[in-house]
Design a protein around this nucleic acid. Structure first.
Lengths: 129, 129
DNA sequence: GTGGGTGCAAACCGTTTGCACACCA
DNA sequence: TGGTGTGCAAACGGTTTGCACCCAC
């Protein structure tokens, strides 16, 4: 297997990911890292985001709108996706294991903890109405 | 608004959707309907799947692998997605509203009932190991 | 110096769309 | 006949990849 070498670009991507709770798209990451590395390419951003996700230093989450987001918070948690504005929000739930128990009653597979995606309308979009 | 006209192709797509619990991709639907309509195009399949989804006669579900699936079962229910084989399975849960309550405790948005996507390994893939 | 990382651009893949023709009403 | 649906092919958007060059080690 390939040995992992340091790269300033990857470091910058990690730093940005851990500085936000916005669950940015690859393109958003690209635009931000571009401020520090004007010549960085979108391909490099994708390669590093996927690499970070592979080694467990980021989380890749496919969204119900077909796109995908990246999360620097690798602690187990679930997500909520707003169908109005497309924002993704962390959902910390102490008693989430109970959810898996409920689901498991009618199911013989293994439901992964903290991989649940909820769907609906966020508080921000409700107040705007 | 445009009046909806009958089409044999759309009817065939609906029939196929309601005959399976496999949550087929657009391409799978295409391959099956092609048996009855050899000249049907993938574009037509997509147009009709989206139309059926818009008028509530089918459900479109984006999967964590980036693709999307279609479900002829429009009764409210949740889904499980297998990260190994990519299969999608219906999850009927009587007391699913409790899940929304749990999630809602730390959250000020509206979590849509029966829109929850679970993630893990299905029973079929477990026995194969 | 070796081999992983980058920038660039082309390729890829699922999905959408513009257009001329076909068909339902 | 008017207007929706179809087949075809091109376009689209997000993501991946091949390649030559760059840089960490």
């Amino acid at each position: 297997m390939a040995a992992l070498k340091y790269s300033r670009q990857r470091e910058s991507i990690k730093t940005y990911l851990s500085s936000t709770v916005e669950h940015p798209t690859a393109d958003t990451v690209y635009l931000h890292v571009k401020e520090e590395f004007p010549n960085i390419s979108l391909g490099t951003v994708y390669r590093n985001l996927n690499l970070l996700s592979d080694i467990g230093e980021a989380v890749k989450i496919n969204t119900p709108d077909g796109g995908c987001r990246f999360d620097g918070n690798v602690m187990p948690h679930n997500h909520f996706f707003c169908k109005k504005c497309g924002s993704m929000i962390d959902l910390e739930m102490d008693d989430i294991d109970h959810v898996n128990e409920i689901a498991g009653k009618n199911f013989d597979g293994i439901i992964e903890s903290h991989s649940i995606l909820f769907y609906g309308i966020c508080g921000n979009c409700i107040t705007k109405n």
